[in-house]
Every structure is written in C-alpha cells, then in structure tokens.
C-alpha cells in the first residue's frame, strides 16, 4: 500500500513514515506544505494520503483545504486528516461529498501504532475513520432533536461506532453483543434515517453524514 504524508513538523513526519513502514506500507512522499502535497498526490496517485490540518504558510486550516482540493483533483482519493484538535465543522466539510475514504483523527491516535495503521487501511479501503472525540460530542447532543432522537440509546451507540468507521464485527466485540444483533441495529438505523438499500459501505457513510449533518 502506497501513502503520501503532509506534515510540517519534522519529528512527526519522520515518526509517521516509520510507523507506516513498520506496518508494511510504502511512503512515496513525505512533504511539509499543501502545494507540495497536491503535486505529490497528483503525481504518485497513492492509495491513501495523510494530511495535517495545520500547514504553512498560514498554519490555520491549510491542510484541510489541501485535502479537499486533492479529493477534487484525484476523485475518490482516500484522505486521512490528522489534527491536534477535532472540530465538527471540519468533519462535516470532509464528509460533505457523501463518499467514503475519509478519516479525521486526533494526532494522539498515532500513539497506538497498530490501531492507527488499522484506521489508515480502513480509509484506504473506502471506509471512514472519525475520531471518537467527534463522535462522543455528537452522541451527547444527538438526543436533543432530529431524526436521531428517534434512535434508541443502543442504536445511537452502534451509530457512533459505525461513524468511527468500525466494522460490524468490531462493533459486536466492543459492545459484547453478537454480530447478528449489530446487523439488526444497523438495519434499524438505516430504516429510521430513511437510507435506501444500496451498497453497505456507502450507506454507512450516509448514516454518519446524517449523524453529523442533523
């Protein structure tokens, strides 16, 4: 699996490269700004791109804009955005296209190398990887209104884990229930959120979007 990294801090860039290589991925380019990142993804066409939100020159949301631009240049490019902070409005912008292959994680998550590599693979495979912190805040407030209010607490829990990007098997393991029970919950969620049957991955992204979009 081939990856491109955009991260302005040398230590973290270096660490990320080593981490990915340790998990059997190949880093074709590791750059420190948005412009070089765009050039690298259009040239290399990697399987996944990893971008820091804060990049020079403005050190604001340059990386986010670069990630969205890269998705326009190379449609369907899986992008994992890393940040010191997770913000719901950024999560929404990333998911706005309604397609998968999107990740948005706290930088802290690289501390657990195996789990991080897992998230990278999931994004590369067209899934989503939303940070539990984004999800936790959404779950807190989703009881307030909208279609999500009709979900049972258990269903909301399942939706949260689904939004993080976990498979039914992983969700079953986390909640100590059977995979069949998870499947039942997800079907009910899709029904309540009025998501037509289509391919499962896409529906999962749409469910997350409904979650974020409210």
């Amino acid at each position: 699996m081939r990856a491109v990294i955009a991260e302005d801090l040398f230590l973290l860039r270096d660490g990320l490269t080593r981490l990915l290589e340790a998990h059997g991925m190949q880093v074709t380019a590791a750059v420190d700004n948005g412009t070089a990142f765009l050039a690298a993804v259009t040239a290399d066409k990697p399987d996944v791109a990893i971008v820091d939100v804060r990049l020079p020159p403005t050190f604001t949301d340059e990386g986010l804009k670069a990630a969205l631009a890269a998705r326009r240049e190379v449609p369907g490019l899986p992008v994992l955005v890393l940040s010191q902070y997770v913000e719901q409005i950024y999560a929404r912008e990333l998911l706005a296209s309604g397609t998968g292959g999107i990740g948005y994680l706290l930088k802290d998550r690289v501390l657990d190398g195996a789990q991080f590599a897992d998230a990278v693979r999931r994004v590369a495979g067209g899934g989503t990887a939303m940070d539990p912190e984004v999800i936790a805040r959404l779950v807190d407030r989703s009881s307030a209104d909208g279609a999500l209010a009709t979900l049972s607490p258990r269903e909301r829990e399942v939706l949260g884990l689904m939004a993080e990007g976990r498979s039914n098997a992983a969700i079953a393991q986390r909640l100590f229930i059977t995979e069949r029970a998870v499947a039942k919950h997800t079907a009910s969620i899709f029904l309540r959120l009025d998501l037509q049957p289509s391919d499962d991955d896409n529906r999962r992204v749409l469910a997350v979007l409904a979650f974020l979009g409210r």
Partner: peptide, 22 residues
C-alpha cells in the same frame, strides 16, 4: 482553534454544534 482558523462566525457555528440544545 476554529476561531483562529476561520474566524468568529465559523467558530460560533462550531460551538453551537457542540451544545446539547437546538
């Protein structure tokens, strides 16, 4: 962070999203 990145309007939009209230 959003206040620094995007300014007041977006930061408040984000704040509003975070609160358990319509």
């Amino acid at each position: 962070p959003v206040l620094a990145d995007r300014g007041l309007a977006e930061a408040l939009r984000g704040l509003v999203l975070d609160l358990p209230l319509r």
